[in-house]
């Protein structure tokens, strides 16, 4: 087989797989809506507000509820020393503190 044929077939296979990714994603999204895969009712009733991404500090565990001073809470000249604090920013500036 010509090397160009092998190359074009490989590219075609790759394109086919990449084209299938959105279909797979769609399928998994539909599966996630199935009652078996939904979060338990007890959790929905808690009206949670934040994703559990980092648990080391309250301003990264609950960025939407923590006040803007919480990263600097240790003492008056404190800096935010938690690693996740450099990645998860505090809540967007609003009219409230």
């Amino acid at each position: 087989m010509r090397s160009s044929s092998r190359f074009l077939m490989t590219i075609l296979m790759g394109v086919s797989v990449v084209t299938l990714l959105p279909l797979h994603a769609e399928y998994r999204q539909r599966m996630s809506l199935h009652p078996e895969n939904r979060p338990p009712q007890a959790l929905a009733a808690l009206k949670l507000t934040d994703l559990c991404l980092a648990t080391e500090a309250r301003h990264t565990r609950h960025p939407s509820l923590a006040d803007r001073h919480s990263p600097f809470q240790e003492h008056p000249a404190a800096l935010d020393f938690f690693p996740s604090g450099s990645l998860i920013l505090p809540h967007a500036p609003t009219h409230t503190p």
Binding site: L53, A54, T55, E56, T60, F82, P83, S84, L87, I88
Partner: peptide, 8 residues
């Protein structure tokens, strides 16, 4: 994301 988190 984990940082110093024990529980991830």
């Amino acid at each position: 994301l984990k940082g110093w988190s024990i529980l991830y």
